[in-house]
Amino acid sequence: MTGQDSTLKRIIKSRWAYFFVAPAMIHFLVFSVYPILSTVYLSFVRFNLQGNTWVGAQNYQVALSDSIFWKSLANTALYTMVVVPVGVGIALFLSSLIFPLKPSRQNFFKGAFYLPQVVSAVVISMIWLWMFDSAHGLLNYLLSTLHLAPISWLGESRTALPSLMFMAVAGGGGSAIILYLAAMGGIPDSLYEAAQIDGANRWIEFWKITLPLLKPTTLYLVVMGTIGSFQVFTSIYMMTRGGPNFATNTIVYRIYQTAFEFLKLGRASAMALILALIIIGISAIQFKWLGTEVEY
């Protein structure tokens, strides 16, 4: 009784704190917790607007026996394995080139590389669609100037997914560069000065000081990049619709198709939860490998 009273008193005492936290909490409960719980429920029913039927694990069984789902999963994994390391690597390389520049030049490059991030993904997809066009596209025009045969970039199974990966890498490094530059700015100069006294060259400095101290930023970029890549959708929807021959069908596109084109919300929920488990698993591994404490 006394304990309850003291809890109540504490709540009353901190009422304004609760009052100010309430909107965020309500938003979190309504727009995050409730949909997640609904997804879990839906994954165990056959969805029908006239009433749902409990089917146990059938949606998981159907999803896992769907060859297109597996193909989508494999495509997504390949996309992530290429786009994330290559994207982070390029961002790190470019940041290393930009960082030694004067602040005004740094700002120019920061702005230039960040610019694609503020453009709508739909617009970017439309621009790349034109660049990849086999008849009138910019890429094939460049090939023709070298007397090379045109390539059906999005029309061949072997080139479609790599084309989308190239597009993601080419336009997606802006925010990574900003973060890397900010992190590089936080590394104390004294560490480099000490290394120089010990006779370290630029490469050793980068390898032994910069790279290890950028580990938290790299972890963040890898985890966020992996989550983002596993959720790739806009470019697929706008440019290939998963084709040709399911070569660019990704898991989120398959979930979208299942939920909103086929109205199989139960199965789509099961797929979404499988995806969530995969992302949680991969993130856990990434935290284990890259998540060491860094002290300057």
Binding site: E156, S157, R241, G243, N245, F246, Q257
Partner: peptide
Amino acid sequence: AAELNPVINNIYQSIFTHA
């Protein structure tokens, strides 16, 4: 029909890509 659409569309894509 809706769920069969990708399957039918894939016939075109499989043959057009010579897969």
